[in-house]
Every structure is written in C-alpha cells, then in structure tokens.
Design a protein around this nucleic acid. Structure first.
Lengths: 216, 216
DNA sequence: AAAAAAGTTTAGGTTTGTCTAAATTTTTAA
DNA sequence: TTAAAAATTTAGACAAACCTAAACTTTTTT
C-alpha cells in the first residue's frame, strides 16, 4: 500500500496533468502547499516505485500504475462527496475537506458497497464524473458559459472553480447543477452576462461565466 | 488536533482501564503491537499534553480531557460499524478493520449527521453502547452465559471476544444480538452448556459461554 | 533480605516527510 | 549568445514514531 502523502502526490499529479501533459515540481509544490525540495524527494520515491515517469528538471507524468491509483482516489473522493450531500444533507460547498480525509480509507469493498448503496451515481455534487469500479468514466462535453453566444440554451453541469466562496455565490444565485439557463444578453462593456432561468434572471461577471460549465 | 498514533494510544488506555484502574506500559505495548520503549516515548508526550496521568514505573490513567477524546473516538468507531452493517450490509465480523480507519475522520459535524441519519442508534453491531454527542452512554447490565444457571432465560446483548473467528462461529450457530435463549442444561463434565433458541438447540463450550453476554 | 526475574525507561538509531540554504540546470532577455 | 532570472535539485537538519540494547526500578522468589 501507499502512504497518505504518496496518494496525495499521485492525485495532484493527475489533476495537474489534465491541463498540461507534463507536470512541474513547482506546480506540485504550490498545489500541495509544500516546498519544491520536498516535492523532488517524493518524486524520486514515486519514480522508484514506478508510479511516475520522472526525468530531473523535465517534470513528471503518471505511469499506468500511478494513474490507476490516482483515479481510484478520485473515485473515492467523489463517491464520499455524493454521500455527504445526498444522504447527510451537506451543501455542495461544505464537503471538500471531509472528502479529502475519506478518500484515503483503504477498503475497496467498502467503496463498492457505498457506490451500490447510492445506486451508482455518475456525477458528484459539483458535476465531476465518478469513475466506476474499473476506473472508467466519461467526461461530458462541457464549455464555460462565457464561450456561449446570446440566445444559447444550456444546462449547468459543472464548475471550474471548486472554492467555497464561488460555490456559495452560485448557490445564492440559484445557479446549481442541473439548472437550465438561457443567455439573454452579453454586456459589451465588461462582457458580463445576463442569464434567464426558470423563475428568475441573474447577471454574472465574465469571471463567473468562465468558471460555470454547461452542456448545450 | 492529535495525531493518529496519539488517538490510538488514548483509545487503548481507555479500553484497558475498564478492567484495571491503572494501565501498564507492557499492556499497552501488547495491545498496540509495539515495543515498551515506544510506549514510554508516547506516554511522555501524552503527559506533556495533559491527556494522561503518568508516573514513571507506575502506569497511566486518562485525565478528563484524555477520556473525552477516547470516548469520542469510540463513538465514531461504533457509529461507523453500525453504518457498515445496517446500511452497507456488511456482516458483524467484517467491520472492525474499516471502522479502525473511519474512527479517525475528524469532522464532528459529519459524525453527528451520520448519527442522525441512522436515527441515533444506542448499540453497535456487537452490542457495545454508542456514546451520544456529549459522550454519555449507559452500559447495560450484562453477564456471561457461563454465569447463568439451568432454566435461566436471557437475551444475547453482547460479546466479550470481538475476534472474527468467534463472531463467525456465533453467526453460524445463530447466536446473534437480540436472540432469546434458555439454558436447558449444563454438562457437569466440561461445563459446556445447552441453549434452546426459537427454532433450534445448540451446545456451546465453557469458553464460548464465557464470551457471550446476556441480559436476564 | 538478598538475588533473580519481570517490567520500565534511557540512550542512541532509523524512516518518512518535511524544511532551509546552497548548488546546479534551464529558460528568458538583453 | 551570453548574462540574468527562474526553476530544480542536492546537502544537511528536524520532528514523529518507531526500533534495539543497555540501564535502571519494582516485584517476586528463595
């Protein structure tokens, strides 16, 4: 088995790799709230275990074995988040910290039964896909609201920013997962956007529109 | 907050203290699968934090602060065990290891909501009492089957041995929590006991009778 | 009440994961 | 294309939690 620290590194590498192919030492240090030198130490250890491909000064990527572990941790994280929201009635902005701990509970049997208990959910409370017990999942084709034109209709299916303040703000506006919106206006001046929903109309900044994801 | 190791020491001291007032270094070393010298190190640390009363060579006891922490860990352990059995359909002999990990999840809010979700259970799957959110619980007055006389009627309410083989054996005999039994015979020769249940009659050794707890 | 045995602590090390400071490599810019 | 800046690695330390071996207390036995 792997240590808690190792699991967190693998998970972080996986997340960072979704943007750029290669992940740098400093990126990891920033995400993990640690120093570059500590990251280097751990990268050597993970490379020894053949969980990452590491060339000094050139960055890292996950090996298939490393990716399997990373996806499994993400599966656990998202299933626990789903549990916390759907069964224990937490709000979507309250669950991240708890899931960061719960994702390291080791039993595979436990997580598979939890999955079944909740009837195999496909997406977590933030719209992120939940890998199945074989690590398979499909990312649905999302784009930021900011990329849509006037009169476009879409359904909110995810967020780019997972921070508590952002999630609370969206909650307050009623912009939650599954809501249908129509872009009724884009303000030239600051490119803020006016969205029409079932029962109300709200205006959001470019910044918010960039971090709110919809399917068309 | 306390480390995982500290929590496990406090929990172990609590459990051992239920038999003898004072807990010895060697008892702890045995229960925690570690060496006496390691125990001594940790005892100094816990004494510094004022979680235990420690006099070198004389053993330890918990301070009120230490007991509070220990009871909270036990509360979490037993609530998670209840969850695993009642919601995820694990058997009573399968849940200990998982609960050993889950008991260290830190959120109080999480455990209180889990408690509510399960409707505030009073006893875990092995019949042990679950402390409430204030750390209060009542031990019901149990005695081993071996202490009962012929023709006594009782209800199985707990076990003294929590090991997997013992629990599996009881399960196989149908001797599970809540079952009503009548002691119909005690064999002179080896003091084994014949128990009559709803639909069957079983015979158990003195050893088993010693570890099976009933209320009268 | 000594001597032996059992239990406990101290001294000195190890591993994991972190750190700071210095050295090295790569990238950027003049 | 070389000098400066940025990124990364190495060297040497540290805290937590464990270890072995040796020393010290307490208890038991004779």
């Amino acid at each position: 088995m792997n240590t808690l620290a190792e699991e967190n590194y693998l998970k972080s590498i996986y997340h960072l790799a979704s943007n750029a192919e290669m992940v740098s030492t400093n990126q990891l240090a920033a995400l993990l709230n640690t120093k570059a030198s500590s990251v280097t130490d751990m990268l050597k250890k993970l490379a020894d275990k053949e969980l990452i491909n590491y060339t000094p000064y050139q960055g890292v990527s996950l090996t298939p074995a490393g990716e399997r572990i990373a996806i499994n941790i993400i599966r656990k994280h998202r299933l626990w988040e789903f549990f916390l929201v759907e069964k224990l009635n937490f709000k979507w902005d309250e669950v991240h910290e708890m899931a960061e701990e719960l994702e390291h509970i080791s039993s595979t049997e436990l997580i598979d039964r939890l999955d079944k208990f909740m009837d195999y959910p496909k997406y977590d409370p933030h719209g992120d896909p939940i890998p199945d017990c074989n690590g398979k999942f499909k990312v649905h084709d999302l784009k930021p609201v900011s990329a849509a034109e006037t009169d476009t209709t879409g359904v909110i299916c995810g967020v780019r920013d997972h921070s508590t303040p952002f999630l609370q703000y969206l909650e307050k506006l009623g912009l939650t997962i599954g809501k249908k919106i129509i872009i009724v206006d884009i303000i030239e001046f600051d490119r803020s956007m006016v969205l029409k929903m079932e029962t109300q109309t709200v205006q959001i900044s470019r910044e918010v529109a960039n971090n709110l994801l919809i399917t068309l």
